[in-house]
Design a protein around this nucleic acid. Sequence first.
RNA 1: GGCCCGGUGGGUGAAUGGCUCAGCCAGCGGACUGCAAAUCCGUUCAUGCGGGUUCGAUUCCCGCCCGGGCCUCCA
Length: 471
Amino acid sequence: MSALVLFDTRTRRKQRFEPIEPGHARVYSCGPTVYAPQHIGNLRPYLFADLLKRALLAEGLRVTHVINITDVGHLTSDADAGEDKMERAAAQAGKTAAEIAAFYTEQWLRDRRRLGCLEAEVYCKATDHIAEQIEMAQRLEERGYTYRIEDGLYFDTSKFPRYAEFARLDLAGQEAGARIGDVAGKRHPQDFALWKFAPPGVERQQEWDSPWGRGFPGWHLECSAMSVKYLGAHFDIHTGGVDHIAVHHTNEIAQSECALGVHPWVEVWMHNEFLDLGGEKLSKSKGHTLVLDDLVARGFEPLVYRYFFLQAHYRQQQAFSFDEMASAAKGYRRLLGVAVAARGVGGEPDAGERDAIEKVRGEFWDAVRDDLNAPRAMEALWRVARGDFSDAAKRELLLDFERWLGLGLATETPPGDAQESDPRIDALVAERRAARAARDFARADAIRDALKAEGIEIEDTKEGTKWRRAR
RNA sequence: GGCCCGGUGGGUGAAUGGCUCAGCCAGCGGACUGCAAAUCCGUUCAUGCGGGUUCGAUUCCCGCCCGGGCCUCCA
């Protein structure tokens, strides 16, 4: 049996995972910013984090998983200036920032659940942890890592020699041509705000008092403050999308290591690559991003998206298209068919089957332990589903694999199996049945063709004729 | 401009310094079916281009081209 190995962004290597505290893994995942819906690409980090959590659990570890919810303060520009997205979304919707945040938080939590993600032990909101953020900024100030300008309190990145290390930044190259002028007084382009002063004359819904004046926290601070609060000054794993490496996580590390005097602050950094939405990024209605409900509206159950996700490795970009969703739906449906059949039988596999069972079980979990290699695990899964195993063996293995897959193999029935009811269609189906009984196949086929033309598919089974709407 | 991923069959997507380069979907053939559908079985098709290292490269190195992403610049 192999050991759990995870790819660490800091060292750019796969490393054997050993929790700092034996038997207990502490994980922090960068969560959503809740001023807009999370599109299906935004969901990938949570699917990935879920695979990580399930892998840790499968190792027999206790897992404390913390996910933050950013309900304040991101600016429209990635510079330190610009309009605040949360405030803007609120203004546009005629609601308060808190209402907007609550709405999108709920939507995100619901999507997570529908995708089969295990709940986090802690969901923490930035606005509930202003005091912790101020405290960390104060620590940094006391230790001489900050400077104050008209705009706010800034972190002086030149005081942190390791600043460029994590993301392997070329600061000299970046600085050479950079204009520092976005925010007057910034000493280095990569310096970032710890606390921003409320702009004079602007009515903000989200501002707080601080030792430096009324304002709001810089947007990297929340993750440092909250992760440390819930997981301690030195914890195991921090996850997020690759887009966070260069700026957000680099800044988190700078703040945290300087404020806490630790290194490394986090043992393993893990980042998921992006979903390539290609031309599907925007659906017809302009500006509307593709969300999970859009897939559902097209007839794809949320777990089909999970199945789709499992077909690629989390560190590879994955190409999204509706054709691929349809293909995933097909595979998922077949897989569930096998699972449903297998879990209906009792008994134990024959002793003679034991070797084959343990071999494929090992292949599955070895793939999981090798940096969460889902495609390889799926390969083993299909060897079980399609292979010569007895139903008892299939049941045992599928239920075992389900602990990591989260595909509903123990509970779900194939999508589209539930028989709909529609008086007109039911009548046509009945008429066709009568025609077939009378061996009037011309009439029977005509009815089938007519239904097919309006997107209704007919399936004759031992239990009778079923129909369903085609995707 | 800097940095980071990647270019494998019709689609997607694993793996690998040599042994028949996974799996899923599609296609094709077969079973089943009145015919289909669904399901099952079988099966065709692939390593972007040019150099280098090597006995041997899809795999390692360099260059090029192409796609995606992050940051910056410009506007």
